[in-house]
């Protein structure tokens, strides 16, 4: 479904992604793991074209996205949830969802506001509230719901467990599994190995912008040296 082929991304003069390649297949949940500064967020942004790779290709359903503006990437079926949430705090919950609304897509599950309120009951109670009066966990739920309004075929979740209470992290894990069950393909970036193992089918480990491991968690379990070298748990 998504195939990233030898991309190189820079932030200013710093070389962040170095010939990075990987694939995401339809219906799976993939976890992108690595230390802080390993390039996880930059990978997400490079797929979304919020950071433009200098070379290489980002193939999504047969089309190269490199060079497209972010809105066209979103329209192609990629949903992006940034790590810092970035909800529109002056807008109500319903208005936040409205910003994300896009027409239905044949190859992806379709979401209505009411369906999303079933998945995120907290949001339903607060539909008229402005974003700024919500707790961090609720804001995190809202960003995901907002992105789902675009009916994406592939959901990119950047560090969904970062900075939220443990009890919300559990809820988040359940939600991701539920989304998978609905037929959504998901890619998350994580530092929390426990969380990643709980939700993902496969792990990709990057370090210094290069891929160091790509396989199932069972395979990772058998290579503790990789885990120790790049994940430092």
């Amino acid at each position: 479904m998504l195939s990233v082929e030898r991309i190189n991304s820079y932030y200013g003069k710093a070389h962040i992604l170095d010939d990075l390649s990987f694939e995401v297949r339809r219906g799976e949940v993939v976890a992108l793991l690595g230390r802080n500064g390993a390039g996880k967020s930059t990978t997400m942004k490079s797929v979304m074209q919020l950071v433009r790779p200098r070379d290489g290709a980002v193939m999504f359903q047969g089309r190269n996205l490199v060079g497209d503006p972010a809105f066209r990437v979103a329209k192609a079926g990629l949903g992006y949830v940034p790590e810092d949430r970035r909800i529109f705090t002056d807008l109500t919950v319903l208005e936040n969802l409205e910003v994300g609304r896009q027409p239905a897509r044949r190859d992806a599950p379709h979401w209505s506001v009411e369906q999303l309120f079933q998945i995120f009951p907290n949001l339903s109670e607060r539909r008229g509230n402005r974003g700024k009066h919500m707790s961090g966990g609720e804001q995190q739920m809202l960003t995901i719901a907002r992105t789902l309004m675009g009916n994406p075929a592939l959901l990119l979740l950047d560090e969904p467990s970062e900075g939220i209470a443990p009890v919300i992290v559990e809820q988040m894990a359940r939600t991701i599994l539920q989304l998978k069950a609905e037929g959504l393909t998901v890619m998350i970036s994580e530092q929390n190995l426990h969380f990643a193992r709980a939700v993902a089918d496969r792990a990709i480990i990057i370090e210094g912008g290069q891929k160091k491991f790509d396989g199932t968690f069972a395979e990772l379990e058998q290579q503790p040296e990789i885990r120790d070298a790049y994940l430092s748990v």
Binding site: Y80, F88, D90, L91, E95, V99, R146
Partner: peptide
């Protein structure tokens, strides 16, 4: 909807783009 998009863009225009709005 235009108004909602305008207000959203006032706050964070890059995010509006990432949600599929030109």
């Amino acid at each position: 909807r235009l108004g909602v998009l305008v207000r959203a863009a006032t706050q964070d225009r890059e995010m509006v783009g990432a949600l599929g709005v030109n």
